[in-house]
Design a binder for these strands. Structure first.
Length: 705
DNA sequence: GTTAGGG
DNA sequence: CCCTAAC
């Protein structure tokens, strides 16, 4: 060992790399797979978040509009329809990512407490797939026919699904929200629905299980996002075998196919990863995204902490149906590529979602809205609670949505839609990177004691439940506020929502503000929303498919969507997909060039401590610079050495005084040798036995160098 | 959690 | 800066 090391230092450093390299890369390749998976999870999370956001906005809009009962139904309809539309994409996704399915499921099983569970529970414990299928099918049915009539609470629940799909829905939502008039909305809904139906059909046909003759409970449960995803995923599997009508299906199928086989094996592995806490995911989230958006420099995300005003989402969009659809498609596509939107939901909130519209409105503290099942109806979702049950007195609640910390996005008008999207992703990612936790708010007060029983806390009666809210909170405050902090964020025009007052107690809970552009399709005409942040550019990154997706007659678009995107993507994606995907997700730390003074400090420290003791260097000279890790210092030193060795003309960035560079070289040279000597010495002393040889060698080395 | 190195 | 491997 010693010898080796010495060698490398002395002269052979160049050689070194070659040897390890091969193995390394190999290993890497192996790992990629895993990473990929993680990524998927990350995506799921994002997706879910997006879905939530959408939902949130939805709910708010709905609430505003629908103070009266009449309105509600309409809303629900819209929602349902939307859902359908989205469903298709979802499904696709599922196929793509075998993993999604798993992740989705996991939550249920994992957390006994989750609501969704309940439904499962009711039904004999079937294979996952079975249950899933059933559920999904149920859901679809419920949507189509029953939204309104669904007995009991189911109705409310039905609504929920819509929220799941984050992105695509948004656009739709926008349209819906705007016009109270059913007109604008309806047509869209129909069209979309149609599409959705088609998709559904495909799925359903494939699935034998499809028949929905499920107990009501199932139906209810269906509401949950999870359900959808499951359903989707399953169908996809079946699709694989049959082959889809749409090319899209083909591609997905293929992918799925592969994965599918592997999935079974991987399932276990996945479980853990599905968890939000998964380190990997976090890592990805936290660090990756930057690359994607280096050019976005201008954009800033403002963190909630910055004290921006909460904007209540409100998007102004044109309601052009066509456009909308295009958007939707686009969105879908996008998400689908990576993951199921749905899945994420399941992940985050173990709570299933079903809520009565009214309740939804009431969700005061901006958090989740609950509906109380207590009133005699038992929502399947809640079922999970039943497990906890003490006798008859269960607390039943459904969470329609979580509020997530507010995100501000500020981008130049000439920014591309794609960049905007990425920016949003970054923001969301940043949020998620720290992990999430759920807060409970009762009567506007945060309930902190986790050990108290619901009864003790007063979460038993219906009344209380109505004032109960759940919040999604970033787990770590430290979550880097990468993009935003440096400059004062521009404040976007916004409306504060009175609907979702934030209690001081729960600062964390905030509404996520999305800018309309997010939802917009790439087509320029579509967006003319007045949002400052809006961007009219087409997304450069968007695939042809995306473009194709926009204005078409419904039927056309459908066909196009199905086929084009799929094929296009398949082609493009297959080759590089993993990479690109990965690179796009997470955000990178903000770049912070070392100042001359920092360099000086570094040089000084290294002169004293030597290389190889970066932690000490950090402690000694950069202890206060929390943004400088010892790895950073090490890297900087590396670059300094390199810089010192190249011609001044080739150096870039802030020029480092030559004298410093000289010191760098000197220190580097010195420590290179010194280190070797040190090692030798240590070795020698330590192993008195083997010394002679070692010493000799050492000497030789030293001489040589 | 640190180090060392490749990217 | 990021990511990993290897400690």
């Amino acid at each position: 060992m010693v010898l080796k090391k010495r060698q490398s230092h002395g002269f052979n450093s160049l050689h070194f790399p070659s040897v390890p390299k091969a193995p390394r890369s190999a290993r890497r390749a192996f790992h990629k797979r895993i990473v990929e998976d993680s990524q998927i999870c990350a995506f799921e999370l994002l997706a879910s978040l997006a879905g939530k956001l959408l939902q949130e906005s939805e709910s708010s809009s709905a609430s505003s509009n629908a103070s009266d009962a009449n309105d509600l139904p309409a809303i629900s309809d819209g929602v349902v329809k939307r859902e359908r539309v989205e469903t298709k994409p979802v499904k696709t996704e599922c196929l793509d990512l075998g993993s999604c399915e798993e992740s989705i499921f996991l939550p249920d099983y994992d957390s006994p407490s989750s609501d969704s569970r309940q439904s499962l529970k009711e039904i004999p414990p079937p294979a996952e797939s079975d249950s899933i299928l059933e559920r999904s099918s149920t859901v679809s049915n419920a949507d189509s026919s029953e939204k309104g009539n669904s007995d009991v609470k189911p109705i409310q629940c039905e609504k929920v699904p819509a929220k799941v799909e984050g992105v695509s829905p948004v656009s739709v939502e926008t349209c819906d929200a705007k016009p109270e008039s059913g007109l604008g909305r309806q047509p869209l809904a129909d069209e979309m629905e149609t599409r959705g139906l088609i998709l559904d059909n495909a799925c359903s046909s494939k699935d034998p299980m499809k028949s929905n003759a499920k107990s009501p409970a199932l139906v209810n449960s269906a509401n949950t996002v999870k359900v959808l995803s499951h359903g989707n995923s399953l169908p996809s599997a079946s699709d694989l075998k049959h082959g889809n009508d749409a090319k899209l299906g083909i591609r997905d199928d293929d992918e799925n196919f592969f994965r599918f086989n592997k999935l079974s094996n991987r399932r276990k592995a996945f479980k853990p990863s599905s968890r939000i806490g998964d380190r990997r995911i976090r890592k990805l989230l936290s660090s990756k995204y930057w690359k994607a958006a280096p050019k976005l420099k201008d954009y800033e995300l403002t963190k909630p902490y910055l004290g921006m005003k909460p904007l209540h989402h409100k998007r102004k969009l044109s309601c052009n149906p066509d456009k909308t659809q295009g958007d939707i498609l686009y969105k879908r596509r996008k998400f689908s590529d990576r993951s199921l939107v749905i899945a994420s939901d399941g992940g985050f909130s173990s709570e299933s979602v079903c809520n009565s519209p009214e309740k939804g409105m009431s969700g005061e503290n901006g958090s989740a809205v609950l509906c109380n099942g207590e009133n005699g109806m038992s929502s399947p979702v809640i079922g999970h609670q039943a497990q906890l049950r003490s006798k008859d007195s269960h607390v039943k609640l459904s969470i329609k949505s979580f509020k997530i910390p507010e995100l501000f996005i500020d981008v130049p008008e000439n920014a591309t839609v794609g960049s905007l999207k990425r920016t949003v992703v970054e923001a969301v990612t940043a949020l998620l990177s720290g992990g999430l936790r759920v807060g409970l708010v009762l009567h506007g007060k945060k309930v902190r004691d986790d050990n108290r029983t619901l009864l003790q806390t007063g979460i038993t009666s219906t009344e209380n439940i109505e004032t109960l809210g759940f919040t999604l909170e970033p787990n770590s405050v430290q979550t880097p506020a990468p993009l935003c902090c440096e400059e004062p964020p521009a404040i976007l025009p916004c409306e504060t929502s009175h609907l979702i007052p934030r209690s001081p107690e729960t600062p964390v809970v905030e509404s996520l503000k999305l800018i309309d552009s997010l939802n917009l399709a790439p087509s320029p005409t579509t967006n003319h929303a007045d949002n400052n942040s809006e961007t009219s550019d087409q997304e450069p990154l968007s695939s042809n498919a995306d473009l194709v997706a926009d204005n078409k007659s419904p039927s056309d678009s459908k066909a196009l969507v199905a086929v084009e995107p799929a094929s296009a993507e398949a082609l493009a994606v297959v080759p590089l997909n993993q990479k690109s995907k990965r690179s796009e997700n997470v955000q990178r730390r903000t770049r912070r060039p070392f100042s001359v003074s920092e360099v000086e400090a570094l040089v000084e420290a290294v002169e004293e401590l030597g290389t190889g003791r970066w932690r000490d260097v950090k402690l000694r000279s950069f202890d206060n610079a929390d943004h400088r890790t010892y790895v950073d210092l090490k890297d900087k030193w590396k670059t300094l050495v390199h810089t010192a060795q190249i011609a001044p003309q080739q150096r870039r960035g802030e020029p480092v005084p030559q004298n410093l560079l000289d010191r760098v070289l000197a220190a580097h040279g010195y420590w290179s040798q010194h280190q070797a000597k040190q090692h030798n010495k240590n070795q020698v002393t330590a192993t008195a036995t083997a010394t002679s040889e070692v010493l000799q060698i050492t000497d030789g080395q030293a001489v040589e160098t």
